[in-house]
């Protein structure tokens, strides 16, 4: 493994832990953006350029901004004096640690993981577009429909109170 992998892994995990543990919600959202950018870097290291740029556009560009807007609209940026952890937080952390131990142990002890392949599977943007328009055209349309429906639904859910008030 190259040292860049370890640097990037440290960046991803460190910023993810910060996003989950900081007190100020705006700081959490900014740490989350760093995590998403680190994941895009990991995709680039894995030779999946298209997914890396899609990650930057969708997650760093859209989802992080959406979360910042939601934090500001729910006044989450004002830090409250009360505890940030829910009463049963020890259970939650314990379950998460148990999940990590089980899955990490399974990865380390697995004999089924395939050996390293020499050649990189080729995936140019032309090939991806070709496949999206021929073999995967039905899933693409379904995802388009789902995105349209969910965005209209999101607007309606967020607006309902206003209509009732008028």
């Amino acid at each position: 493994m190259s040292p860049w992998f370890y640097i990037n892994a440290l960046l991803i995990v460190g910023s993810a832990v910060a996003a989950m543990s900081l007190r100020n919600l705006v700081h959490c959202a900014l740490s989350l953006a760093v995590t998403f950018a680190g994941l895009a870097l990991a995709y680039l290291q894995l030779q999946a350029q298209f997914v890396g740029f899609a990650q930057v556009l969708v997650y760093v560009g859209a989802v992080a901004i959406l979360i910042v807007f939601a934090i500001l609209l729910t006044r989450g940026s004002e830090t409250s004096p009360e505890c940030i952890l829910s009463p049963g937080w020890l259970w939650g952390v314990g379950i998460a640690a148990l999940t990590f131990v089980v899955s990490g142990g399974a990865i380390l002890s697995s004999k089924l993981l395939p050996a390293i392949q020499g050649e990189v599977p080729s995936a140019t943007v032309r090939q991806i577009g070709d496949q999206l328009m021929t073999k995967y055209v039905l899933p693409l349309e379904v995802v388009g429909l789902l995105l349209t429906a969910s965005l209209i639904g999101a607007v309606i859910i967020a607006m309902r109170q206003k209509e009732e008030g008028q």
């Binding site: 989950m20 829910s86 259970w91 939650g92 952390v93 379950i95 998460a96 990590f100």
Partner: peptide
């Protein structure tokens, strides 16, 4: 695991 811990705690 980090995400799960944060979501639960």
């Amino acid at each position: 695991a980090v995400g799960l811990g944060g979501a639960l705690a």
